[in-house]
């Protein structure tokens, strides 16, 4: 009964739900891009071999603050408080991307830092003896090995980010969760609506996991240290 009702509601509101789903994917992808770009740089800068007091304290402070506060609070600060301080007005999409992106940076930093630290120190020594510069050591020796180590954790971060994007409904961004709330208020049938939305999230996260498994299989060959 509930399943057929859910299907009927989803079908009736399909264009809005598709629009919301697209917005969820877009905002997650943009935030992930920010998270990956800065998180990889911060993670490299904070690994055991390259950390330096000049930036180490800043990265650690950033990670502690972001990981120690709820993402919901971060979203509200970026959307409501930041314009007061900076004078720059952000729309819901911009604020959402920045808040989720900044949140993701902290987690990706820790994932990359941990992943690089698991590569044996002998790999750095071998690259040095063979005449690799530090940048080439990272690009050609350390990061390719790190990627396999951190892939499961990175996939966790991607799926967490996708689910956390539902928090942006609080600042009025028309992502799939906000659409669901709106539909539920109109139809007065929250059970059917939220069940349908849950299935959409499940579909998205499962697709990510399937792609990740394929990539993991591709990287499976080689890599063991013994």
């Amino acid at each position: 009964m509930t399943v057929s009702k859910t299907c009927a509601v989803m079908y009736a509101w399909l264009p809005l739900i598709v629009q919301g789903t697209v917005m969820t994917v877009v905002v997650s992808c943009c935030a992930l891009l920010i998270g990956l770009c800065f998180g990889v740089i911060f993670g490299i800068g904070n690994c055991n071999r390259l950390k330096h007091v000049a930036w180490n304290w800043f990265i650690n402070f950033y990670v502690v603050v972001i990981r120690g506060t709820p993402v919901y609070v971060q979203v509200l600060i970026v959307y409501y408080a930041l314009p007061d301080v900076t004078g720059i007005n952000l729309n819901a999409l911009e604020a959402g991307v920045i808040a989720l992106g900044c949140n993701s940076i902290a987690y990706v930093t820790e994932i990359v830092r941990g992943g690089i630290n698991t590569v044996p120190g002998g790999q750095w020594d071998a690259a040095y003896v063979l005449g690799y510069s530090q940048i080439k050591t990272l690009a050609l020796v350390i990061l390719p090995q790190t990627l396999k180590n951190i892939l499961p954790a990175l996939i966790n971060e991607v799926t967490a980010l996708l689910k956390e994007s539902s928090i942006l409904s609080a600042i009025g961004l028309l992502e799939v969760m906000r659409v669901a709330i709106n539909i539920s208020e109109k139809t007065l049938d929250p059970m059917s609506v939220y069940l349908g939305i849950a299935l959409i999230y499940l579909g998205l996260t499962t697709s990510i996991s399937l792609v990740a498994k394929k990539i993991e299989k591709m990287l499976e060959v080689g890599h063991d240290y013994h």
Binding site: P144, Q145, G222, H223, D224, Y225
Partner: peptide, 8 residues
Amino acid sequence: QFNLFPHL
């Protein structure tokens, strides 16, 4: 430990 590059 040889330290060969395992991904190559």
